[in-house]
Amino acid sequence: MNVFRLAGDMTHLSSILVLLLKIHTIKSCAGISLKTQELYALVFITRYLDIFDRFTSIYNFLMKLIFLGSSLSIVWYMRRHKAVHRSYDKDQDTFRYQFIVLPCLLLALVINHKLTFKEVMWTFSLYLEAVAILPQLVLLQRTRNIDNLTGQYVFLLGAYRALYLLNWVYRYFTEPGFVRWITWIAGLVQTLLYADFFYYYILSWKNNVKLELPA
């Protein structure tokens, strides 16, 4: 494991902790898209179907458990916890699942390494992760007042993807034969989706003003 991969994972973990902090201590999920959170839960469930029969390391195993547990608990909080649920911007969170899930499923059935259930589900999870942020970005654009924790959450998620790109560049040059087209292209698309957000996030940080995305 290289430093970019570790930094990427830690950034990913931090983003989830920031979100849990907001939900658990402030009891608010204002500005957070439940659709995106449910898509992430689906991403982890379909990607880690091999959690009990493909062991790579204790680190990977524990991280998989953490990602599964945290994503499911976030969805639970937003749906079932009374105070948290009240703060959910339901009317603004209108992105339709089927626009994301169906194309990803079709693409995974067509472009994959092997046409088996687990392999297609794994590929589906990569495509789905790439675009799962879309409902969140749409919601951000509609939110007049983006609070700091929400802004940080999305920034950390984007940073995690950027660090994974660096990890792949590093691995390409240090590990002979390290080529993973499906992972790379899905990862690149995912990172590009954050470009616009990054631009406004850094601008607001530099000028020390509240983050607001143009409509």
Binding site: H12, T56, S57, N60, H113, N167, G177, T183
Partner: peptide
């Protein structure tokens, strides 16, 4: 297929 055995990332 080599690609199938390299799921060492999260």
């Amino acid at each position: 297929d080599e690609q199938l055995d390299v799921k060492d990332e999260l």
